[in-house]
Amino acid sequence: MGRYILKRLLVAIPMVLGMTLLTFILMQITPGNFLDTIRMDPQVSEETIGHYQKMYQLDKPMFQQYIHWVYNLFHLEFGYSFYFNIPVAKVIAGRLFNTFVLSLASFLFTWMIAIPLGIWAALHRNRWIDRCIQFFSFICLSLPSFLLALVFLFLASQTNFLPLGGMHGPDFENMNFFVRSMDFLKHLIIPTLALSIGSIAALQKIMRGNMLDVLSQQYILAARAKGLPEDRVIYWHALRNAINPLVTLLGYEFSGLLSGAALIEIICSWPGLGSLMLTAVRSKDIYLVMANMLMGGVLFIIGNLLADVLLAKLDPRIRYDKKH
């Protein structure tokens, strides 16, 4: 197992670096950089601009800048943010938690609803309740999440029931812990719902399909022939097999954890990495953009690896194949 992981990592690292190189080149291709905005300010002297150039190494050739960046990576130095004037690591750390919470909430919500729903739909296949669920699922699948977010914000504005975006109420600092938590949760609801509904529809469909596949297998018939109670047949024998393929999905969910929420964050004014990325891209804050992309790529690799390892652990057949 260890060798397998190592091999995957060895292949993955150049891919991640390749991706960052691509990003770097893209950011460099665009005419103009951060300094242009400063140059336009007549009060800033040539000296200061020269000083900035040196500090950010903008006078060196492109390739050298990139090598320098990669070199710094190994020292866990992610560069400096031009726009915020503090190290990139600090900028990201500030927003990381917010995005993480939102993604985690949406992930948990999605899986806790979709899996039971899918199982239930499979068990009541083709009855009217199943048909209803499939119908709504299809609609929700086609609803873009940003549209959902807008509609929810609209409803919120009409009913004054939920806050309209942002992460804190205006009086946040003065609230005690309990009220603060409630306030935070209330702000979390709309973005989480907008993110989750499409995923729930998709996941439910997959779960239902897997469950139906498994239920038609011989070993389910054999389990019943052994005299096992129906509950055990379904929730132990069937479910255990139906859920295996979903584990790979888990890995992909993990990869999309930080970037999936980006658009919704921007719409709901949730101060996370998504809105950060938007600002960074707009102001051509190179190192911030690269760091974000790097994180995305790394999470993707880790997520995939996680999915593969989990699958191997759960399905003995795969373990066996890999050994040989």
Binding site: A223, R240, R317
Partner: peptide
């Protein structure tokens, strides 16, 4: 059953 590979739960 006829095919024990299918009649046993693989996991």
């Amino acid at each position: 059953f006829q095919e024990p590979l299918n009649a046993f739960n693989p996991v």
